[in-house]
Design a protein around this nucleic acid. Structure first.
Lengths: 104, 104
DNA sequence: TTGACATGAAACTGAATGGTTTCCTATATA
DNA sequence: TATATAGGAAACCATTCAGTTTCATGTCAA
């Protein structure tokens, strides 16, 4: 199943940082790797794992590859956390249910 | 910082499974490890990592060690996901803000 | 069409991870 | 007090993971 791939993807701080970066718009590999101390191939590997988790999508544009956030994949995590949130914030959990039931 | 320890802790499917088990009440090491195919020391290591992430607390009772869920630690994850949730469910994100502002 | 630029791919390395086996310590109880 | 029960600790192993270096490929622009 794919759930594990999402949890795996967000387990690394560099990957979470990349997600934050992409939240303001799509970026090429060069633009992304310029922000980190590690080499470009290392960033490429992180991007691949994010892609496997469904958290980003990639499109080619000329010789560039543009990476965009696909945050819907985080619903998996959100749902998982929500189950436990009933134990620390029942009010929020209840409201959330209402919202989600009202949501289609 | 400690945020990473939480994401690390929830990255493993066995550990997430243990959290689910503990959501119905505290359990001794023996009770927990009886549910898994792996050996007891392996489960001990998972419990240690959960503890380092603040997700469980342990108390001694006679010769037993009882493990209880401490789900507040998941607020870290919840907050992180919430930032991205604005991109896939603005309605939920907005309501959540209202609830949290109203919460003290 | 040549050169510069953007990326892909492969082989390698060290450290972390998830697991094992073996042995030790502490507590409860017959 | 002897024994069974619950758990801790250490040493070890295989795999995964995050990173590197080196080299190949594809596209743009002069």
């Amino acid at each position: 199943m794919t759930e594990q791939l999402v949890f795996r993807a967000i387990a690394d701080p560099t990957r979470r940082s990349i997600m934050t970066m992409l939240s303001s718009g799509e970026r090429s590999l060069n633009e992304i790797s310029a922000q980190y101390e590690m080499t470009r191939p290392a960033v490429t590997k992180h991007l691949k794992i994010l892609q496997e988790g469904g958290l980003i999508r990639v499109r080619a544009k000329g010789r560039e590859r543009l990476h965009a956030l696909q945050p819907e994949a985080l619903k998996t995590v959100s749902d998982w956390v929500s189950f436990f949130s009933q134990f620390w914030d029942e009010k929020l959990a209840d409201l959330k249910q209402v919202v989600e039931a009202d949501d289609d």
